[in-house]
Design a protein around this nucleic acid. Structure first.
Lengths: 243, 243
DNA sequence: CGATCATGTGCACTGAGTGCCACACGTTGC
DNA sequence: GCAACGTGTGGCACTCAGTGCACATGATCG
């Protein structure tokens, strides 16, 4: 695999630390692909990488972590992105943009992402671990939305549901891209999927995004006699657009 | 795991239970509660239960499984419920009803559910395992919706998103009930949460359920010029009434 | 020079999970 | 009665993931 795409040892502060870490990832994936994940022991990895067994667990807290080497950084980036807002953005749109950060990470190394996808699809243990990774993204989005929806009735409920919907839509598009071996265009697929979520939860998906703007904006408003007026107003408000 | 032969020979699937399995669950929870999950070894459990170590793994494929002894049966029930429909039901409403089966299982043993909730909240390993359990429910709902949405454009996308939203809403209500030590009313909370999902995805939540019928029947319909007509029709149809 | 710190290694240990075999039963058949 | 069975159970012995601890190196700093 790619032994060390980043050239200089004197690189930026974020990512240029460990040569050994990358060597372990490369050795691990080589063995995983040629003989399977469960058939590969940590000892096999470290002997191929030429390092001590103890060093493996210094870089990766578990054997599964070597399969997702960059998710920790991506989660940090997502939290930073969500925390860097002015607090005036449309919340649903904001979490959709945050989800796109994950797609960007996958799209940076298509071949690596596809290989990992095939692994996680086959190995139940890796699928379970991936779930816990995805769950942390979802929690980050939900926590952000909870903050933005504070005071709103059912704020935490809406935050949890929308976060789950955003993650599901993102993963749906991401998986279809991975299934195409990275041949299709991931960005338009994710835009389309997230557009569906935005329309479902009553915010116009467009506003600067031409591809999604023309697709669908249908919300049916029927108010039964006796329905609380504050709810009618809220639905209309949220249906009409970005706050 | 479940050695239940398909098709009830005696009573239905709930009551044909090995005594040893229950003894193991009881012993395990006693130790988990008094000294913690990670501080309890499988040897501790089997010695307290008075059985051999090997028998533990005969009934539970892993140590985590003893914490969720009845989810396998519940998942089977959910799949059976989804498969038993006539194919004419309103799909979103159907998966909401399926999700209520999970709530029912939790509500059957409130004290047990609350104890387990406290455990999973504290132990990261159990949280991860719970995620894989919840994921299987979500996949069951999504697969059902994919079948119902077959042929529809973006059918799988809508299926995945709605399934995720239903699970998130259900879990939101379930957790608030668990946090109240089982004192609040779980059914109304779940009805309310699922009602939010149903309105978000364009189907009236009421229709036969009196408690939910009077609470909210407000759907705002705004159709942008150029929106596909089939979607407008579908939204109006589903918003207007019982399937 | 010694002191400190960071990074990598070796070793022994715990504990989960598995494979294999033996034993205790209950039943059926002769 | 005994023999042949299938089933549930217990008892090792083993692999492997993960941890704690001590030790070795090298660099920097006083």
């Amino acid at each position: 695999m790619s032994e060390e795409p980043r050239g200089g040892d004197t690189a930026d502060t974020t990512t240029a630390k460990p040569p050994m870490r990358d060597a372990l990832v490369a050795a691990a994936f080589q063995l995983f692909l040629e003989r399977g994940y469960e058939q590969t022991t940590v000892d096999d990895i470290v002997t191929l990488a030429g390092v001590g067994r103890r060093s493996f667990f210094r870089y990766f807290p578990s054997k599964e972590d070597v399969v997702f080497p960059d998710h920790e950084r991506c989660l940090t980036d997502m939290k930073a992105f969500l925390g860097a807002g002015t607090g005036e953005e449309e919340p649903v749109r904001r979490v959709c943009d945050a989800a796109r950060l994950v797609l960007r990470m996958y799209a940076e190394n298509p071949t690596f992402s596809v290989q990992r996808y095939r692994l996680t699809k086959k190995v139940p243990g890796l699928r379970a671990y991936e779930l816990s990774v995805v769950w942390r993204y979802e929690r980050a989005l939900a926590e952000y939305l909870r903050g933005r929806f504070a005071g709103r009735p059912d704020g935490t409920l809406q935050a949890d549901v929308i976060a789950a919907a955003v993650v599901a839509a993102h993963n749906n598009a991401l998986r279809s891209w991975l299934r195409s071996d990275g041949q299709s265009d991931p960005d338009t697929a994710v835009d389309h999927a997230l557009g569906y979520v935005q329309t479902s939860f009553g915010s116009s998906p467009g506003a600067g995004d031409a591809s999604a703007a023309e697709q669908e904006d249908v919300v049916v408003v029927i108010s039964r006699r006796g329905a609380p007026m504050w709810r009618v107003v809220r639905e209309i408000e949220s249906a009409l657009g970005p706050e």
